Structures are given as structure tokens and as C-alpha cells.
Amino acid sequence: MTRIDQTFARLRNQNRKAFVAYIMGGDPDSDRSLAVMRGLPGAGVDIIELGMPFTDPMADGPTIQLAGQRSLEGGMTLDRLLDMVRAFRAEDETTPIVLMGYYNPIYSRGVERFLTEAREAGIDGLIVVDLPPEEDDELCVPAQQAGLNFIRLATPTTDNQRLPTVLQNTSGFVYYVSVTGITGSAAAQAGDVGPEVARIKAATDLPVIVGFGITTPEAAQTIASVADGCVVGSAIVKLIGEGRPTEEVLARVADLAAGAHAA
């Protein structure tokens, strides 16, 4: 079992929903980003999604695009990102880390080398938003053979004909994108999300986590109540981009986590 599998098993035993937090690695610089990352578990985060900055983040809205630009301008590279993970792992051996981003930096590095280094650094799973299931042999299958979960996105446009293909090689959890469009673009609605989560859960035993459009503790509670948990990204990244102190960012994360855990 990966750390992700172990976390969901523990949460099921506790009858609790998962709270997943996204931050952009290296935003606005390595030291600040690592300080926030180290504080996330204590703020109630069950799984950390760590963004890989990329120059052309086509699925992301302005908030996360700007975070990626700040990170790159601050000198963040894939090597430095993995060093961040190693530094985190020196203090925390249990919190799962999912690397989220685009295939280009992985392809440029070489899949085999990337997977070896990611696993050694302490990465538990990957979300690569621009590799469809038809390309599973490119990264998904090798990643799972290397012991990493490969987490797939399902969306409101993933119909029943497409869903089995999406789920075929997915592991860890299914990430349900609650709204069409880019990150931070609209508010998630439980009335829309609930039936879709139920449809996905009827086709898989994997947990279903809902992301996009969750910005308040109340929304986190409402969405988590119809799924196995929720992801918050843009609302956290926005505070970092505003230059808020680390303590303020983590206090807001704790409020969001408390909302999800109350579901």
C-alpha cells in the first residue's frame, strides 16, 4: 500500500472525509513554499498536492498560472522541487505527496529517471493533466510499476462510455473536476456534484475526491459530504500570492480542513 492508500484506509476507519490541499512548489520562493508545506499536516491536511511549475499550464486559471510564473521566476526547477520534497520528508514520513502538473518537464527529464528520483525523494502519486488514458504506456503504467499511484481526472463531460477508460489504470483516488473550465473559474455545487460522484463510485472502489471551485469552509463541508473528500487549491494559492504571512495562510487552511472534516 502507498501512503495514499494507507491514508484513505485510516480515514475510512475514522469515518472521516479527506482534505487535500494544493500549493505550487516554489511559490513565491523555495523557503516560503517549504515553510507552508511543512505546516499543512498540522493544519489538518491529509494529502498534499504539490504543483510542478510549467510555462504553459493550460488547465489552470490566472491564480495558479501566476503562482507558476512566480515559482519559475524565483528559480524553481524540477531538481529543486524534489529537494523540497526531500526536506519535507526529513520531518514527515507519513503525509502523502502527489505531484501535479504537466508532462513536458517529465518527458524532458526522461520517464525512467524521473520516476526513480520522484520515488526516492518521497513522492507517492502523480496527476498529469495532459496525458489521456490512450497514452497510459507513456507514464501511467511505468509509474504504477515504480510504486507510484497515478491519479486520473474525471470531469462533468466524462460520460458512461468514456468512464471505464478513464478508470482502467487509475489508482490512489479519482479526482473529480466539479466544474467545466479552468481552476478557480466557478463555484462547485453539491447538487450537481453528488450524482456525478455516485455515478463514478458505482464503477470503481477507489475514493472520489472533488476539486475546483471550493473556496470556503462551508463549501468544503458541503462538497465533502457528497464525496470522499475535497481539494482546495486556488483559495490557498491566492493568499500566498497576496504575500500573506505563513501563519495566516495555515490558519485559513485549518478552517478549510475543519469544514471538510465536519462533513
Rank of each mutant, 00 (worst) to 15 (best):
T77S: 15
G259A: 14
R89T: 13
L163G: 07
I236K: 10
A198D: 14
L82H: 05
V85A: 09
V98G: 00
D228M: 04
E218R: 12
I182T: 13
A198G: 05
V249C: 09
K238Q: 14
I236G: 06
L250G: 08
A262C: 03
Q65D: 03
I47D: 01
Y103S: 11
I97L: 15
V179G: 04
R32V: 12
K201E: 02
D205A: 14
L256D: 10
L167R: 07
S71G: 14
E218Q: 15
T165H: 14
I106L: 13
P156I: 08
I64M: 12
V98Y: 04
A90Q: 15
Q161L: 09
T2R: 12
V20W: 01
V128H: 03
G26L: 08
R244C: 03
G213F: 13
Q221P: 00
V98Q: 03
A190K: 13
R89H: 12
A143P: 00
G25A: 14
D92G: 05
I97Q: 03
G211N: 05
D46C: 12
T95C: 13
G75F: 10
A154H: 01
C230S: 08
V232P: 00
L239P: 00
L66Y: 06
Q6K: 15
S33D: 06
P53V: 11
C140T: 14
G233C: 13
T63C: 03
K17Q: 12
P105V: 07
D205E: 14
A227I: 07
L11K: 01
T204W: 08
P105N: 11
V177F: 01
L72K: 09
A262I: 02
V253Q: 04
T116Y: 07
D46R: 10
A35D: 12
L256K: 11
I47S: 07
P53S: 12
C140K: 07
S225Y: 07
V237E: 08
S171G: 13
A258R: 15
T155R: 08
I97S: 02
R162C: 06
D130T: 12
K17N: 09
L99Y: 04
G26A: 11
T158C: 05
V208W: 02
V179P: 02
V166M: 13
F150S: 01
G42W: 04
R199L: 13
L131A: 06
E112W: 01
N160H: 04
R162V: 05
T216D: 06
P156R: 06
P62W: 05
V111M: 10
D60H: 10
A190G: 06
I209P: 01
R3S: 10
A202Y: 09
G213T: 11
T77W: 11
V98S: 03
G229F: 04
Y102C: 07
M37K: 10
A202C: 08
T94S: 14
A87Q: 15
E135W: 09
H261K: 15
Q168A: 14
R119G: 03
P133I: 05
Q65L: 04
L66D: 14
F150H: 01
R10L: 12
A121P: 05
I64C: 11
S234R: 08
D205C: 00
G74C: 06
T222V: 08
L82D: 03
V249H: 03
V249L: 09
V193F: 04
N160A: 14
I23D: 01
Y107V: 00
G39W: 01
L99F: 08
G110K: 12
P57K: 02
T170Y: 00
G181P: 06
P96I: 12
P57W: 04
Q69V: 13
